[in-house]
């Protein structure tokens, strides 16, 4: 877990580039058309302030197969291995038992064709397909060092989805940054959208017609609720999507190196303790955790002085 934090920190401090592509497919009817375009616009707005980010959006008649492939080819020529690429697909999708297709103007684009284009990009990748039947795309898209998120668990969940709406909402809601480190990761956004989608169906007293999935191990069907126990979410937890505040500019002056080292050690101990929680008795865990948290708070106070 410490590795996770270090990698996350690396993602924050190293001058890596971030590439984003949002595609809003065909709505089929004006209401959906309007909604999909608005969500794509919201994504663009949310990412606008992200330092060093290259943000591309394709909506309406521009969201063609050729344009999508061209944008991805453009990224392939610019991106490096330590860069990040996040691709979001909004709209309706279909699955014919063999391949998933995103409904766009002209010829639809399949998951296999997307995979071909994405495989040429050396960057770490996040692919989010927030459409109906998107679960059918997992098999074609999954790959080592790529996180795949879909709105549905299978290609058979064919109703229009709400997952994308909440995915976009997460970028506006500070509550989505659950660890309060001012960096919104793919895992945090996924968990936010998953919970809100579930609440939506619960509140409306409707049978849930979509069950989102996250797959970031390169194999298997993915998990609706990624966790340490099922081994999913590790990569997504390291994938920064949006920086919310001053996290990227933390100053590490030489005078504070010792404190930073101490802080680092304490954070490691906290992570390790959390992983031992299940095997410890509660009072012992609580006592140790509280000691570590208090110590960390003191160190942070010294660093902030």
């Amino acid at each position: 877990m410490r590795t996770v934090l270090l990698l996350a920190a690396a993602a924050l401090s190293v001058q890596a580039n971030s590439f984003y592509l949002t595609v809003a497919g065909l709505g089929g009817e004006p209401d959906y058309e309007q909604r999909f375009t608005a969500w794509a616009g919201d994504m663009k707005k949310a990412l606008a302030g992200e330092a060093g980010a290259k943000v591309e959006v394709l909506t309406g008649k521009d969201a063609t197969k050729a344009n999508i492939q061209a944008k991805l080819a453009g990224f392939a020529s610019q991106a490096k291995a330590d860069d990040t690429l996040a691709v979001f697909f909004i709209g309706h999708g279909t699955f014919d038992d063999i391949d998933y297709k995103l409904n766009i103007p002209g010829q639809d684009i399949s998951a296999s064709e997307l995979a071909d284009a994405l495989n040429k990009i050396p960057a770490r990748q996040l692919v989010v397909i927030g459409t109906s039947a998107s679960g059918g795309a997992i098999e074609k898209l999954q790959k080592d060092k790529r996180t795949v998120i879909t709105a549905t668990k299978a290609g058979t969940e064919k109703n229009a989805t709400v997952f994308a709406r909440f995915w976009v909402e997460a970028f506006r809601d500070p509550a989505a940054d659950t660890d309060k480190n001012q960096t919104l990761t793919a895992l945090e956004v996924y968990k936010y959208a998953r919970l809100k989608t579930k609440d939506y169906f619960d509140t409306q007293k409707r049978l849930a017609t979509e069950h989102s999935m996250l797959e970031d191990t390169g194999k298997g069907d993915g998990e609706n609720d990624p966790s340490v126990a099922n081994g999913q979410g590790l990569l997504a937890g390291r994938f920064p999507l949006l920086h919310l505040g001053s996290a990227a500019t933390v100053a590490a002056t030489p005078a504070k190196q010792a404190l930073l080292k101490k802080k680092d050690d304490l954070e490691t101990s906290i992570d390790e303790l959390k992983y031992k929680k299940a095997s410890m008795d509660t009072p012992a865990y609580t006592k140790q955790m509280q000691q570590l948290l208090l110590e960390l708070a003191k160190v942070q106070a010294s660093l902030d002085q």
Partner: peptide
């Protein structure tokens, strides 16, 4: 803080 160890307002 257990949920977010680095959450500054809570640390304060």
């Amino acid at each position: 803080l257990e949920a977010a160890p680095g959450y500054k307002p809570a640390q304060k």
